[in-house]
Amino acid sequence: MAILHTCLNVADADRAVDWYTENLGFEESWGFETPDGETVNRYVADEDGVELQLSDTDGQTPADEGDLWDHLAVKVDDVDAAFEEIDDHGVVKEPADQPAAGARTAFIEDPDGHVIELIEPLDD
C-alpha cells in the first residue's frame, strides 16, 4: 500500500490551486468533475509527486474544523479484496468503478472515524 493523496475540501478550487502553486511551488497535475457537475476535483503535486486533492462542491463552503479535510487515499492492488480484508470501523461507500477518476474505489473509516479511500487504478 502507498499513500496517494489527501483530499482537502475547499471553497474555490481555482483559488486553492493558485495558492498551492504560487506559495508552495506545487504543480497542478490533473483534475476531474463528478458526473453530476456539482464537484470539481483539482490535484496539485509536490516535487516528489505527493498530491493534494482540492475538492470544490457547489453550495458548500468548508469553515469548521471537521469539514476542512475529507479523506486520505491509499493505493491498493485489489480494492475488493482490501475492502473485505481490512478491519474497518464503518463503510462509507462500497467498491465501485469511478471512470472519471480512472479508478475503482471504496471508502471506509478508521477506528477514530477518519475516512480512508482505497484506490485501485483501472486498466487502460
Rank of each mutant, 00 (worst) to 15 (best):
T57H: 11
D14L: 09
H5I: 05
D67K: 05
N23T: 13
T6K: 03
N41H: 13
H89R: 03
D70V: 07
D64I: 01
V50H: 12
D97C: 05
V44M: 07
A96D: 08
P99E: 02
T39I: 00
E109C: 09
F32A: 04
D77F: 08
R104F: 00
T39G: 03
L54T: 03
P111H: 10
L4C: 04
M1H: 11
I3S: 08
V91F: 01
D48P: 00
I119T: 12
T61K: 10
D12C: 04
V44F: 03
R42Q: 05
D67P: 07
H89L: 03
P111Y: 04
Y20W: 15
T21M: 04
L122E: 01
A45C: 10
W30P: 02
R104I: 02
T21N: 07
D112E: 14
V40M: 14
D58K: 13
L8C: 11
A45G: 06
H114R: 12
V40N: 13
D46V: 09
K93M: 15
H5C: 08
D18H: 13
W19E: 09
R104H: 11
T57L: 05
P35T: 12
P95K: 02
I108E: 00
V44K: 02
V76L: 07
D46P: 08
D46S: 03
A45Y: 01
P62E: 11
P121T: 08
E85Y: 02
D124H: 10
V76C: 04
D48W: 08
W19H: 12
G37I: 04
T34W: 04
V17Q: 03
E28C: 01
A11S: 15
D70R: 14
E33I: 15
A2E: 15
A100D: 14
G66D: 14
H5L: 06
A106I: 02
N23V: 14
P111D: 06
L24E: 05
D124Y: 06
E28N: 04
P111W: 09
T21F: 05
P95H: 06
V74T: 05
V91N: 01
I3F: 14
Q98F: 12
L4W: 04
D56T: 06
E22P: 00
Y20S: 05
W30Y: 13
W69S: 11
S29Y: 01
D36I: 05
A13W: 02
A73Q: 05
V50Q: 10
C7V: 13
C7P: 04
E94A: 15
N9M: 07
W69F: 13
S29G: 00
A73F: 03
D80P: 01
P62W: 02
F26V: 00
L52T: 03
V74E: 05
G102Q: 03
V79E: 08
L24A: 15
Q60V: 15
V44Q: 01
A100I: 09
F32S: 10
D36V: 12
W30A: 13
A106D: 01
D46I: 07
G59P: 02
A2Y: 14
W69N: 07
A11Y: 11
G25A: 00
M1N: 09
D58P: 00
P95M: 08
D58G: 04
A2F: 08
L118E: 00
E28F: 06
D48E: 13
A81S: 11
F83I: 07
L118Q: 04
E51K: 11
E85C: 03
A82S: 15
H89W: 12
A11G: 15
D87T: 12
D97F: 00
A11E: 14
